[in-house]
C-alpha cells in the first residue's frame, strides 16, 4: 500500500496537510486548540513552533489520530481524516516527542513490526529496515534491545521506524531533543536529503536555530491559535533590529552614548548593542575606536528566529491583555 501511495492522491497537487478550524477541548475543559487553520504544501519543510503548552503536540496528535478532535477538518493530500482515516494514516510517518517503543524489543523487530502494521511483508520490511538503519548509522545495533541504546540512538530508531512505510508526510515532534550537536547535525543532513527527495516534513523544535536553518515556511502557535504563518525568509526580513554582544578586553565603569544605535551594559565586561538591520557595523567599530574601547569578541545575542519568536509571543500576550 505504501508503495502505491502516489497513485492515491486525489487532486494533482493538493496540499500535504490542510487544517481548517481545528478545535480541541479536553475533558477537563482545557482548550488546547482554538480553531486553527494551516496549509502545508507538498514538498515543504515546515516549522511548527510554540512555547510549551501552545498546542503543537495536540495539533500533531489530531493529525495522526492520536487525539480525538472536537471539531474542524483535517485533510492529508486531499483525503479527509473523518472519511478516509486509513488512507490518511498510510501517508503519515510520526516521530513523537517521547520515546514510545517497547524497550525490551530488539531494534530490528520494532521497525519490522511497524512495517507489518502498514501491510508490508516481513521480508520486505526487513530489507527496508536494514537500509534505514545503515543510513542512520544504527545497523550494528539492530539485534540489541532498544533499552541499551543511547538517547541519540533511540531518536534515530524512532526516525527509522517512522520511515519504514515511505511516508509522504513526515512529522517530527522535537526530534533532536537531548541529542548532542554532532548527531543533531547529521540528523539535519538526513532530513534535508529526505525533503529534497520529495517528503514533506513538519518539524516542531525548541532549537530555533534548527528551524531557521532547515525550514522554508513557519507557523507559530500560542494558546491554541496560529499567531504567525508565513515564509521563513519573509518573516525574518520583518525583524527591524539586530542585537550584538561584545566582550571587552577591560572592564568599563561608564558608558558613552551613541545616536546611531542603542548601547547598554550587560555587565562591566560585556556590552549589548541594538542596531538597525540596515545600519553598517562600521559605525559600531568607529564608535569603539573613538572611545578607545578594546573588543575581544562579538556574537549575536540570539538567533534571528528566536528574536522574532519572542517578540511575536510577547506581542500576542499584550494584545490579549488589552482586549
Amino acid at each position: 500500500m505504501a508503495k502505491n501511495s502516489d497513485n492515491l492522491i486525489k487532486d494533482k497537487n493538493p496540499p500535504a496537510l490542510q487544517i481548517r478550524n481545528l478545535k480541541k477541548t479536553y475533558d477537563n475543559g482545557m482548550v488546547a486548540l482554538n480553531g486553527i487553520d494551516l496549509t502545508i504544501e507538498q514538498g515543504d519543510f515546515f516549522a511548527l513552533l510554540g512555547a510549551n503548552g501552545a498546542g503543537k503536540s495536540t495539533a500533531i496528535g489530531a493529525v495522526c489520530s492520536l487525539v480525538n478532535k472536537t471539531s474542524g477538518t483535517i485533510k492529508v493530500f486531499g483525503h479527509d481524516l473523518d472519511f478516509e482515516r486509513d488512507m490518511v494514516k498510510s501517508f503519515i510517518g510520526l516521530v513523537p516527542q517521547e520515546f514510545n517503543f517497547n524497550i525490551f524489543e530488539p531494534v530490528i523487530e520494532i521497525i519490522v513490526n511497524q512495517g507489518g502494521y502498514y501491510g508490508i511483508q516481513r521480508k520486505e520490511a526487513f530489507r527496508r529496515a536494514e537500509a534505514l538503519l545503515k543510513h542512520l548509522d544504527l545497523w550494528d545495533k539492530h539485534k540489541q534491545k532498544a533499552r541499551n541504546l543511547s538517547g541519540g540512538m533511540k531518536r534515530r530508531l524512532m526516525i527509522a521506524r517512522a520511515l519504514i512505510h515511505n511516508p509522504k508526510l513526515l512529522i517530527l515532534d522535537e526530534p533532536t531533543a537531548g541529542v548532542d550537536i554532532e548527531i543533531r547535525r547529521s540528523m539535519w543532513v538526513f532530513l534535508k536529503q529526505l525533503n529534497s527527495a520529495g517528503t514533506t516534513i513538519i518539524l516542531t523544535t525548541h532549537y530555533l536555530e534548527e528551524a531557521e536553518n532547515m525550514c522554508k515556511n513557519i507557523a507559530i502557535l500560542d494558546n491554541g491559535e496560529v499567531i504567525e504563518n508565513s515564509n521563513m525568509k519573509q518573516l525574518l526580513s520583518h525583524l527591524q533590529t539586530e542585537r550584538l554582544v561584545f566582550d571587552l578586553k577591560e572592564p568599563m565603569a561608564t558608558l558613552p552614548s551613541s545616536e546611531l544605535f542603542k548601547i547598554q551594559f550587560q555587565d562591566a565586561n560585556t556590552l549589548e548593542i541594538e542596531l538597525d538591520k540596515n545600519s553598517s557595523l562600521n559605525f559600531v567599530f568607529d564608535f569603539f575606536n573613538q572611545h578607545n574601547i578594546q573588543i575581544l569578541s562579538m556574537r549575536n545575542k540570539r538567533n534571528r528566529l528566536e528574536e522574532f519568536f519572542m517578540e511575536r509571543i510577547s506581542q500576542n500576550n499584550k494584545e490579549k491583555v488589552s482586549v
Binding site: L66, K89, Y117, Y118
Partner: peptide, 10 residues
C-alpha cells in the same frame, strides 16, 4: 506509549 505504533497505522 507503544500502542501509538498501532494507533497511527492503518
Amino acid at each position: 506509549g507503544n500502542v501509538q505504533e498501532l494507533l497511527i497505522s492503518p
